[in-house]
Structure formats: structure tokens, C-alpha cells
């Protein structure tokens, strides 16, 4: 049976968790290791850390966060942001992360996916894709840099290529919905989930617990990612899972 996953996402900069609304007004949400341990105890299925500064002098700070997390948290976690080369992936995985997520660097140099998969296996490589609906509504385009930079690439074509190159999972964010709290872009999610054979994590737009259910039931996502609804105590993982189970989603109970 396929079992859905609930995945809190922690945006980290300079060793602290922050969550901005539309990338401004960054609110300090705490120590990443403490938050990660709390989510583990609450029953989160996985965690994602996104290093949103990702300047090169910040790399050692992130390695330290990963090492401390690996000693305290016994659920899988993915680290993304600033993985530009095989060497970056190696450092993060050696420090104790289970997967690395690549985004801009993979669009700029797709071979990076092949390189990480060849050394560490496809299960270590998550390809994060930020997609935005095209103006004529015919499809979705890949954007970089938090939705600021268009690439001209068709999102479905890029995702198919990424999987062929060795991405073992897709982390799909709708840039139209990110930060809006209006729910996932279900059409985008379903289009991607139904066209690839690897797990797909839906992201961008979660404002209510029902949105998590919709991502799995209507969007066919393997996992659902959310940040703000969990960080500030609006909802717990247990509440999320209780609602999902009540609507027939198969998930690890808390």
C-alpha cells in the first residue's frame, strides 16, 4: 500500500528557522534542531530543511545543524538550498542528512542530478521544482530564485528529464500558491504525480488542514509539505493526521 507523508518544512538562515510571508518579514521561529525534535515527537513523517541564505560562508553553519539534527532526530530529513556541486551534496549527506534537494543548480547543470545519483543512489536525490502557470494557461513553467527568474522550461518536461537523470523524488512547489494559504495547485500536482513513477511531494499554499487532504486525495501526492500552519502552533501534526485518516488517507498514525 502507498502511505502518505506529512512533512514540515523548516526554512533556515544562519542557523535559525525563519518563515517569511512572500519572502519578506522574516519571523524568527526558533532553533532548527529543537523544532525538528519536536516534530519528530509529534509524529511528523519526514523533515525538510531549506537553507534560504545559502551563501558559501553559511555552509558550515548548515553542516553543524545537520550533524546536531542527526544525533537528536530519528526520522528522515532532506536538506536543500545551496547544493551546487557533488561536493556540497557529499558534505550534507556525510553530516547525516538522508537526502539532498537540488533546484537552481540542477536546472543550470542537469548533469548534477546524474552525479549525485551515481555516487549516493537515486533515493538521495530530490529535485525541487518551482512551477508557475503560463500566462496563456496552457501549462507550467519552471522558475528559479524563489519565483523571480523564468527559465522558459516546461515544468512537466523538466521533471520527466530530472527523473530520467536519477531524481528519486520530486518536491513540487506552486509559485502561484506559495504564501497564499489558498491550498495546493491541485491541477499542477495531479499532472505531475500522474506522469512520473517516483514519489512527489506537494508544496506551496497550505493554509488549512483540509488542503493537506486535498493534496493527497485530489492531487495524488505521495507527501504534503507545509511550514507556517505548523510552526506557529496553529495546528499540530496529530490534528493533520487525524483529519487525513478520517477522510480515508492511509498514513502512519501518531
Amino acid at each position: 500500500m502507498e502511505v502518505a507523508r506529512v512533512i514540515p518544512c523548516l526554512d533556515v538562515t544562519n542557523g535559525r528557522v525563519v518563515k517569511g510571508v512572500n519572502f519578506v518579514d522574516l519571523r524568527d521561529a526558533g532553533d532548527p534542531v529543537e523544532l525538528a525534535a519536536r516534530y519528530d515527537q509529534q509524529g511528523a513523517d519526514e523533515l525538510v530543511f531549506l537553507d534560504i541564505t545559502a551563501s558559501s560562508d553559511n555552509r558550515n553553519t548548515m553542516i553543524d545543524v545537520v550533524e546536531r539534527t542527526a544525533a537528536e532526530v530519528f526520522i528522515p530529513f532532506t536538506v536543500g538550498g545551496g547544493i551546487r556541486a557533488l561536493e556540497d551534496a557529499r558534505g550534507i549527506l556525510r553530516a547525516g542528512a538522508d537526502k539532498v534537494s537540488v533546484n537552481t543548480s540542477a536546472v543550470e547543470r542537469p548533469q548534477l542530478i546524474n552525479e549525485i545519483a551515481a555516487e549516493f543512489g537515486v533515493q538521495c536525490v530530490v529535485c525541487a521544482v518551482d512551477a508557475k502557470r503560463t500566462a496563456d494557461g496552457s501549462g507550467w513553467e519552471v522558475f528559479l530564485h524563489g519565483g523571480r527568474t523564468p527559465t522558459g522550461k516546461n515544468a512537466l518536461e523538466w521533471i520527466t528529464e530530472a527523473v530520467q537523470r536519477g531524481a528519486g523524488e520530486i518536491l513540487l512547489t506552486s509559485m502561484d500558491r506559495d504564501g497564499t494559504r489558498e491550498g495546493f495547485d491541485i491541477e499542477l500536482t495531479r499532472a505531475v504525480c500522474d506522469s512520473v513513477g517516483v514519489p512527489v511531494i506537494a508544496s506551496g499554499g497550505v493554509g488549512t488542514l483540509q488542503h493537506l487532504v486535498d493534496g493527497v486525495v485530489q492531487g495524488h501526492a505521495s507527501g504534503v509539505l507545509a511550514a507556517s500552519i505548523f510552526h506557529f502552533g496553529e495546528h499540530t501534526i496529530a490534528e493533520a493526521k487525524a483529519l487525513m485518516i478520517s477522510q480515508g488517507v492511509v498514513i502512519r498514525p501518531v
Binding site: 502507498e2 502511505v3 537515486v122 533515493q123 528519486g168 523524488e169 513513477g197 517516483v198 505521495s222 498514513i251
Partner: peptide
Amino acid sequence: NVRRPQMQWN
């Protein structure tokens, strides 16, 4: 008829 890898709790 399942996704590969199996990357989940079971």
C-alpha cells in the same frame, strides 16, 4: 502498480 522507490513509512 506502485511508485519506485518505496520511500515511505509502512
